[in-house]
Amino acid sequence: MTTEKLELFEVFIRSKRGLDHKHVGSLHAEDHAQALEYARDCYTRRSEGVSIWVMKSNDICASQEDDAESFYDPSDDKPYRHATYYVLPDPVNNM
């Protein structure tokens, strides 16, 4: 058997209560249930987590490297979007 017929899943683990789920890697599995079990075996062997999410990698819509210019460059010349751009009046001490 090869992994060709299996789907790719992304694995997210929450290491402690109160913290975010963090992406830790990916794995192959037949469906969500199996992916969750393999995530337990592949990524929580050393007590890394208290909660696991898995999702199909195909379901992720990701930004493309090619889009970087149109996505991010336009904000380079808009310094007024940063709070540090504004000079605060003296009476406002703690911002």
Binding site: M1, T2, T3, L6, L27, H28, A29, E37, Y38, D41, C42, R45
Partner: peptide
């Protein structure tokens, strides 16, 4: 094992 993930799981 039939594939890597199962290999690790069964070894556990």
């Amino acid at each position: 094992g039939p594939f890597l993930e199962e290999d690790i799981a069964y070894a556990n």
